[in-house]
Design a binder for these strands. Structure first.
Lengths: 203, 203
DNA sequence: GTCTATACAGCGATAGAC
DNA sequence: GTCTATCGCTGTATAGAC
């Protein structure tokens, strides 16, 4: 039952998820097949269907795991020393890391294909963005109360602006193969939220 | 040869492009087939292949036409009275109109699927974004010189921020079916570029 | 310019042996 | 848990009649 922290899970189901995750982030959910995964892992398509009955089940499992990992990453950002400004920078860096592997955000990719997805996957995609919005909202409110951040409108609206802008910056930067293009957009976006004259410790 | 302005082109090739365009913007390039188009138009798949030999040819024609129309729309924005601020608002409104039809930007969608596209389509997608960047760059520089706009960094970097942020705002707003979510992000983004105290005539 | 008919590869999915 | 074998369907694309 216990999953070792030292030794990562190398079970077949996990390996399937790892490969499928990469395919979705690079090609989109409609851009790969069970045959692609089986070829990559050296197992048959039938073996795939044993672990994930259908592509929809696999897709939903991908989103749930991705959202879970993202939540952990956000907790890590919270745990690290630093105020609201540093936490926002840490948030943007999560996106940058994904782009560095020449991948799109899993749920950003699925947002594009949204209308073709089975409903369980649609629901999971929206839950991911809601989760991001909630975390950002907290950071923004805390930062504004501490006098570190400033922004017009509500924290929620600003959180949505940040999510959309970072997803969009990834979307465009990836075809150009230009990580710096993303970083410049992220920096400019977050700079507009820092209150001039605020004393901050930047990570 | 001359295409009437009053009577739109109702030729088969145009009707194919219209239907295919909608499919790409809603489902993605990998989310529809020749059969879908032929069913929608009441013609056979073979007839489609007469007008566009392969799906790649059709895809490239879609992007070229879309970019051409977008260029016309930008010219219209330029022709309308108004300064840099109004032109930026007009630019954002082009995106809003697309989202209003519950569509994603054609090239934003194709940016997500970029790695699965044939190279002619890839090239055309990047050309579209370059075209947008160039137009925005001009507006931003003009606005800054006129004292209407202000922004840190170069006009080019700011242009890229705007493109990415609007594409991303569309990407996220569409699954939620929430046009207001896009508008709020666009307003907030552009408000950050207006120089405080600047006297402007907003359309 | 559109049709019927068809080729052939690939898709997701299943049955049943091991 | 993985295999072989196969199903029914859909994918893009083509040949040739009209």
């Amino acid at each position: 039952m216990a999953i070792s922290v030292v030794h990562p899970d190398t079970g077949t189901a996990t390996r399937i998820l790892d490969v499928a995750e990469q395919f979705v982030q690079v090609r989109g959910f409609n851009g790969f097949s069970y045959a692609d995964i089986s070829a990559e892992l050296g197992i048959t398509k039938a073996a795939l269907h044993y672990h994930f009955a259908g592509k929809a089940d696999l897709g939903r499992a991908l989103i749930v795991r991705y959202a879970s990992r993202f939540a952990e990453a956000l907790a890590d950002v919270d745990a690290a020393a630093g105020g609201a400004s540093a936490r926002l920078a840490g948030y943007a860096d999560l996106y940058r890391q994904v782009l560095h592997d020449q991948r799109m955000c899993l749920c950003g990719m699925l947002a594009a294909e949204y209308q073709t997805l089975p409903q369980p996957m649609q629901d999971a995609v929206l839950a991911f963005f809601d989760q991001n919005e909630h975390w950002l909202e907290g950071v923004l409110e805390e930062g504004r109360e501490a006098g570190i951040l400033q922004f017009g409108g509500t924290a929620r609206a600003t959180a949505r602006l940040i999510i959309g802008s970072l997803e969009g910056a990834m979307l465009i930067a990836r075809p150009y193969g230009d990580e710096a293009r993303f970083q410049a957009a992220a920096d400019s976006l977050l700079a507009g939220l820092i209150r001039p004259g605020a004393v901050t410790t930047v990570a």
